[in-house]
């Protein structure tokens, strides 16, 4: 039962990274190091947005069809 098109690709496993890391709160539930007076807890979680965007962009590019 092979179909010409499939949603199986190793690249999709990458998506687990930006799901797992932002949920590991014990790693960053702290004030220091703070940036511009914003505690680690806040700025790092905002930085995870970049992690999410990077990962989804890579996965999109590597699994794109019809090139």
């Amino acid at each position: 039962m092979t179909t010409p098109r499939t949603d199986r690709s190793r690249w999709y496993w990458l998506l687990l990274i930006p799901v797992a890391i932002p949920l590991a709160t014990p790693l960053f539930n702290a004030v220091e190091p703070s940036v511009f007076g914003i505690p680690l807890f806040y700025w790092l979680q905002l930085a995870f947005i970049v992690l999410g965007v990077t990962t989804t962009t890579v996965v999109y590019r590597m699994t794109r069809r019809g090139r």
Binding site: Y12, L15, L16, I17, P18, V19, P22, Q45, G52, T56
Partner: peptide, 24 residues
Amino acid sequence: GAMGFFAVPYTVVVYPLVMLVLIR
């Protein structure tokens, strides 16, 4: 306080989590 900030990780993890689901 901090509890309310859950909205940020919530809207970060959602996209990688649902990408495959939504295209299907």
